[in-house]
């Protein structure tokens, strides 16, 4: 029981931290820092990473407004204002990539959340079983397989002539499907791949949250005759709510950036699949590689960042409106 409580503190820490930090900043800054030194040190590598890759590189934004020539550098290239942004809207490719990024990410977030919660609940119910560790490991493993390799798994399944799935379809007398020419199937295929790869680690976070719930609550509920579903609905779910909200908020913040490896490798960069698989990240990459125009790629990237930033603000504003005073959930 003692152990459970400790794990719970760790799991719940992100939700409470910003608020605690605000207080710390205004009152006893030094003491607060010393007390949390270990946590700061643990976060340090990530903070350095963010500083170097997200703040230092921010200066490069100016490239989007230049006719950038690599050899002349930023100081030597000519300014051309918003001209680079024109190409974004010269065709509907950028709009399509935006739409795909948002709808696919929303779908991944929503269904991913349900599946992760479900998996966490299932493991939680058998937590004492000797096989728990085995299940957890099996669920986590796909996470460590690179998208390049996954793309070959998927190709082995979906290749039109030799794919396992088409062979199966033929064996039951159905026509084979040209998967790599049919964009309509790809949202589902990508969702499957994403769940296979990501549901395990998602469930782990919620599992640790569930383990942090005081078992006495469940015992009391059981004595009162609550069913499993009622226990879940009235104890587990409310206790997990802060964790869910913070996870959703973080995910929403990233809704404008897609997992490049997933969207570039798994559909094998097939032009016919662009209608449903081309997302902003692949669009930007192709702008750079195909057009060999750094400035246009930078413009596309800036567009992604600006809209993404707006979305985080909007999501945070919504959460602020619905949170209660004693249970702050918003980031800022």
């Amino acid at each position: 029981m003692d152990i459970h409580v400790k794990e719970g503190q760790i799991a719940a820490a992100p939700a409470a931290a910003p608020n605690r930090m605000q207080r710390g900043l205004t009152t006893m800054r030094g003491q607060h820092f010393r007390r949390n030194l270990t946590w700061f040190l643990m976060a340090l590598p990530a903070l350095i990473w963010i500083f170097v890759f997200k703040y230092v590189t921010l200066f490069g934004v100016v490239i989007a407004f230049q006719d950038y020539k690599g050899r002349r550098g930023i100081s030597g290239s000519d300014w051309i204002g918003l001209k680079n942004f024109e190409f974004l809207f010269a065709t509907d490719s950028a709009v399509r990539a935006t739409r795909n990024t948002v709808t696919l990410n929303l779908m991944f977030i929503a269904i991913g959340l349900v599946v992760a919660l479900l998996l966490a609940w299932l493991i939680f119910e058998i937590y004492t079983s000797a096989l728990t560790k085995f299940y957890q490991t099996m669920l986590l493993l796909p996470r460590f397989i690179s998208w390049v390799i996954v793309s070959y798994f998927v190709f082995a399944l979906l290749s039109t002539d030799n794919g396992v799935i088409n062979k199966f379809l033929e064996s039951i007398g159905r026509d084979p499907v040209a998967w790599y020419n049919s964009s309509e199937f790809w949202p589902m295929i990508l969702l499957t791949v994403v769940l296979w790869g990501g549901a395990g680690i998602g469930s782990l976070i919620y599992l640790s949250g569930m383990l942090a719930i005081d078992p006495q609550l469940f015992e009391a509920a059981k004595i009162d005759g609550a069913s499993k579903w009622q226990q879940y609905r009235f104890i587990t779910f409310p206790m997990l709510k802060p964790l869910i909200v913070i996870n959703l908020l973080l995910a929403l913040g990233g809704i404008f950036s897609a997992d490049f490896g997933l969207f570039y490798q798994v559909p094998r960069n097939q032009a016919l699949l662009y209608p449903t698989t081309d997302v902003l990240d692949t669009f930007i990459y192709r702008s750079l590689i195909e057009l060999q125009n750094v400035s246009m790629a930078a413009a596309a990237n800036l567009y992604q960042s600006l809209v993404g930033f707006g979305l985080v603000l909007a999501a945070n504003w919504v959460v602020r409106r619905i949170e209660s005073q004693d249970e702050p959930l918003s980031l800022f």
Binding site: F87, T91, A271, L272, E290, L291
Partner: peptide
């Protein structure tokens, strides 16, 4: 430049699949 960039992308997305009998 803007038009050329868009047309390059269209060549990959529409032209090549057509030229190779995919579509």
């Amino acid at each position: 430049q803007t038009e050329a960039a868009a047309l390059t992308s269209l060549g990959t997305e529409y032209g090549e699949p057509l030229a190779n009998g995919i579509v």
